[in-house]
């Protein structure tokens, strides 16, 4: 038997293949999308803090305009710099996560090659609109992050992000009283749009913070490695 034979003769993976060229299972990839300012980066940072002791993880950011999100994560020191990669998106963040995912695939594969083995890679989208979703060729599951201050009618409006994301996060619930958002109504609208798909209401400033989202991620990972 030549165990490394496969490694020598198999070229790089094409897309979402669950196995790496060496036959090992690759990391679970979870996408985080949502409108500008809804708290994607803050959620990623909180998830890294919550999970970094138990999992080997890395982050890919897709900014609209700069490397700011990557720099925020570096500044907050949630992960060592070699575990954070920024992808430029040519002014079209949704293109890079949906229509032409090649640069993001390269980023996640390079992270696994260079710092691996990894359990989890979070791919953060640049702030975009309600139609931006991740390609299934790039991520295994996606989280759509909206916030109460962006208007409590967003769940009712729906759109692919709200309707189809594997997890909908309604962020900044602590602000609801100040911006006049009706959380019960948001929950009912989300339920109507999403049927059985889960919704998490969170505030990263109060209560249990990112714990519900972290628990959902752990469940995804358990299913992935099962």
């Amino acid at each position: 038997m030549h165990l490394d034979h496969t490694h020598d003769t198999t070229p790089a993976a094409l897309g979402a293949d669950a196995r790496r060229p060496d036959g090992a299972r690759r990391a679970l990839r979870i996408g985080l999308g949502g409108p500008v300012g809804s708290g994607k980066t803050a959620t990623v940072a909180a998830l890294c803090r919550a999970l970094r002791e138990e999992l080997s993880l890395a982050v890919v950011t897709n900014d609209i305009y700069t490397c700011e999100d990557a720099e925020f994560l570096l500044r907050e020191a949630v992960l060592p710099p070699e575990r954070i990669t920024a992808v430029e998106t040519g002014a079209c963040p949704h293109t890079a996560i949906r229509d032409d995912i090649s640069a993001n695939l390269e980023a996640v594969e390079d992270l696994e090659d260079e710092v691996g083995p990894l359990d989890l890679i979070l791919v953060e989208s640049g702030g975009d609109n309600l139609t931006a979703t991740f390609s299934k060729g790039l991520v295994d599951a996606q989280i759509f992050v909206i916030d109460v201050a962006g208007g409590d009618d967003i769940p009712r409006k729906g759109g692919p992000g709200v309707t189809t994301a594997d997890l909908l996060v309604v962020n900044k619930t602590d602000l609801a009283p100040y911006v006049g958002s009706d959380l019960d109504r948001m929950a009912a609208d989300a339920k109507a749009q999403r049927a059985e798909l889960p919704v998490v209401f969170q505030s990263l400033r109060t209560g249990s913070g990112v714990q519900d989202v972290a628990a959902w991620v752990r469940a995804q990972l358990a299913a992935w490695t099962a």
């Binding site: 992808v87 040519g90 079209c92 890079a96 229509d99 032409d100 090649s102």
Partner: peptide, 11 residues
């Protein structure tokens, strides 16, 4: 230009 080969991010 829609062929997914990365060109959209280069000027």
């Amino acid at each position: 230009g829609r062929f997914p080969a990365g060109g959209h991010a280069h000027s």
